[in-house]
Design a protein around this nucleic acid. Structure first.
Length: 477
RNA sequence: GUCCCGUUCGUCUAGUGGUAAGGACUCAGGAUUUUCAUUCCUGCAACAGGGGUUCGACUCCCCUACGGGACGCCA
C-alpha cells in the first residue's frame, strides 16, 4: 500500500463546475482508475469572500452526473480528512509555526493599501510588480511588539533571493525558474486562513497525494510549493501540468466568450457521456486513432504520457458531432430518459410512453442535442401549422387528389406494416398519375408540416390512423 | 514589462532522424435515400521563420517571431 497512487481534484466552490475543472477531475480520476489508486475530492474553500451557498453540492452532483466518483472526500470520509480546507485551519496554523521556526517564513505587516501603493509605484518606475521584502528583515522583538500592539499581519514565505530551481513535470519535462522572479508568497492571510499555496502543499502531503495533476496556470507557482516541501523536509509529489482549454481566439477559456459551466452544457442538451468523451480528447490522445470512447474504455486507455503540451481550443462543432453520435448509439431508454426534462420544458406530454419512445427513436438521429429534440418532435403532439408555401402545395389539384385517395385507402391498411403503406402510395400514384415530388410532398406537408422530414410510414406509425386521417382531412377542400 | 510554457491542415490531433506527413470535426463534390437527416466514398487543407548538427530533419540544438500562462491577504 506504500506505493498506492493517490490523486486529487481540489476545486474551490465558486458555484459551478468549470469544464476545465471537469477535465482536470477526469484526468485525475482516470489515472486513479487506470492504476488502481485512489481519487480524492478536496474542497479548497479558504477564501471566505468567495464562498457560494450550495456550491459544494453542486460540484459533487456535476461530477456524479458525468460518472466521476471519488474514493475519499466530503460525505465520504477517509483516514486523512477532513476534506474541506475550512475545517483544517488548526492544521495550517501548526505548520505555519514550524515554518516560522525554521525561518522559512516571516511576519509581514504591510496592509493591502501599502501593497497596492507599492505595486503602483513599481509600475510607474517600469519595475516588475512584486513584494519588495520590506518586512523580511524585521527583528524578532519588533515583530513581537507589533503583534502585541494588535497590528494585523500576514505570513509570507521566505524564498531564496538568488539561484534557480529546476523541477520535472511529467508533461513538460524539465522546467527551470530563477528564484529572483519568485515572490515571497503570502501563506497565511490576516484572517488566519491559509492561501492556496500553503493549504495545497500541506494537504497534498498529509493526504499522501503522489501525483498532482492540475492546470498549467499553476506551473509558475511550483517553486513556491517546492520550497515549502523542502522547508518541511517532505517529499514532493510528482507533477503533471495540463495544457489549458482555450477560446476560439486561443485565450484561456472564459465566460465572456464561451459557456464554461458543465451544467450549461448539460442544459443545452449535451449528454454527459459525450461531454466527457469530448473533453478527454482535448489535451490527451489514445494510442489508436479512435474518437468515441466510453468512460470505461477511457479508464483502460488513459496514460499521463500521452497528454499534450499545447493548449486546446474548445471546439463546439466537434462536440455537436460527438453528441450526435451518442444520441444515435446510446440505448433508446437512456436517450428517452435524458430527453424528458427537455420535453417538460417545452410543455410536451410524455406520459404515453410507447408513443414517446417511438418519437425519440425517430427524432434522435436527426438532431445534435437533446434540446433540439422537442422542436423536431412537436408535430407529433400538435397539429402542424402550414405557412403560405406549404398551404399552396396542399391546395394544388394533384395534392387534393392524392389526399382523396388516401382517405379511402388508409382505413383498410395495417399501418404497422411499412410495406403496406408503401404499396398504397404506389397504388395512388398509378390511380392518380401523380408521382415523385408531387406525390410525397403533399403527404409530408399534411402529416409533418414540412417539405423535408422522416419517411411517410414512420410518420403514420407514430401518429396513428385516426390522427393521420384527421390531418389529411383537414387539408381537403 | 519580467519569468515560464507552447507552436503539425481552420479546429482536435498521430508522428519521436529516412513517411506519398496519418486520423477526426468543419467545408466541397458524389453515392444511397421519394425529401431531409443518417450512412458511405472522394476531395480541399498543415510541420511558424532562420540558422546549425547529420549522409538525411516535422522529429535534436540555438536564435527570432507569434501565441498563451503567471506575476493578488483568488484559487
Amino acid at each position: 500500500m506504500q506505493n498506492e497512487i493517490r490523486v486529487r481534484f481540489a476545486p474551490s466552490p465558486t458555484g459551478y463546475l468549470h469544464v476545465g475543472g471537469l477535465r482536470t477531475a477526469l484526468y485525475n480520476f482516470l489515472y486513479a482508475r487506470k492504476t488502481g489508486g485512489k481519487f480524492l475530492l478536496r474542497i479548497e474553500d479558504t477564501d471566505r469572500n468567495r464562498y457560494v451557498e450550495g456550491a459544494i453540492e453542486n460540484l459533487i452532483s456535476a461530477l456524479q452526473l458525468c460518472g466521476i466518483d471519488y474514493d475519499e472526500g466530503p460525505e465520504k470520509e477517509g483516514e486523512v480528512g477532513p476534506y474541506l480546507q475550512s475545517a483544517r485551519t488548526e492544521i495550517y496554523q501548526k505548520y505555519i509555526k514550524i515554518l516560522l521556526e525554521k525561518d522559512a517564513a516571516y511576519h509581514c505587516f504591510c496592509s493591502s493599501e501599502d501593497l497596492d501603493k507599492m505595486r503602483q509605484q513599481q509600475k510607474e518606475q517600469g519595475l516588475d510588480p512584486r513584494y519588495d521584502g520590506r518586512c523580511r528583515k524585521l527583528s524578532q522583538q519588533e515583530v513581537e511588539k507589533r503583534i502585541a500592539a494588535g497590528e494585523s499581519y500576514v505570513i509570507r514565505e521566505k524564498t531564496p533571493e538568488t539561484g534557480e530551481i529546476t523541477f520535472y513535470d511529467i508533461v513538460r519535462d524539465k522546467v527551470t525558474i530563477p528564484w529572483e522572479t519568485v515572490d515571497d508568497q503570502i501563506l497565511m492571510k490576516s484572517d488566519g486562513f491559509p492561501t492556496y499555496h500553503l493549504a495545497n502543499v500541506i494537504d497534498d502531503h498529509l493526504m499522501k497525494i503522489t501525483h498532482v495533476i492540475r492546470g498549467e496556470e499553476w506551473l509558475s507557482s511550483v517553486p513556491k510549493h517546492l520550497f515549502l516541501y523542502q522547508a518541511l523536509s517532505w517529499k514532493p509529489p510528482k507533477l503533471a501540468h495540463l495544457p489549458l482549454l482555450l477560446n476560439e481566439d486561443k485565450s484561456k477559456l472564459s465566460k465572456r466568450q464561451n459557456d464554461v459551466a458543465v451544467e450549461d452544457y448539460l442544459q443545452k442538451g449535451y449528454l454527459p457521456e459525450a461531454l466527457i468523451n469530448f473533453i478527454a480528447l482535448l489535451g490527451w490522445h489514445p494510442a489508436k486513432d479512435k474518437e468515441i470512447y466510453s468512460l470505461e474504455e477511457l479508464k483502460k486507455e488513459f496514460s499521463l504520457k500521452r497528454i499534450s503540451k499545447a493548449g486546446a481550443v474548445f471546439n463546439v462543432e466537434k462536440l455537436d458531432w460527438m453528441n450526435g453520435q451518442y444520441l444515435r448509439n446510446l440505448s433508446l431508454d437512456r436517450i428517452a430518459e435524458a430527453a424528458k426534462p427537455f420535453f417538460a420544458e417545452a410543455g410536451l406530454d410524455t406520459s404515453n410512453t410507447e408513443k414517446y419512445k417511438k418519437v425519440i427513436d425517430l427524432v434522435r438521429g436527426r438532431v445534435h442535442t437533446l434540446q433540439q429534440i422537442p422542436n423536431a418532435a412537436i408535430v407529433f403532439y400538435q397539429q402542424p401549422q402550414l405557412d403560405a408555401a406549404k398551404q399552396e402545395v396542399a391546395d394544388k389539384e394533384s395534392s387534393q387528389q392524392v389526399y382523396k385517395f388516401w382517405l379511402e385507402k388508409l382505413p383498410n391498411l395495417d399501418i404497422d406494416s411499412s410495406k403496406q403503406i408503401n404499396t398504397a402510395i404506389k397504388e395512388i400514384s398509378q390511380e392518380t398519375g401523380v408521382k415523385g415530388k408531387n406525390l410525397y410532398m403533399p403527404l409530408r406537408v399534411a402529416l409533418y408540416g414540412d417539405f423535408h422530414g422522416p419517411e411517410i410510414p414512420e410518420l403514420i406509425q407514430i401518429l396513428g390512423k385516426d390522427e393521420t386521417l384527421a390531418r389529411v382531412e383537414k387539408l381537403l377542400k
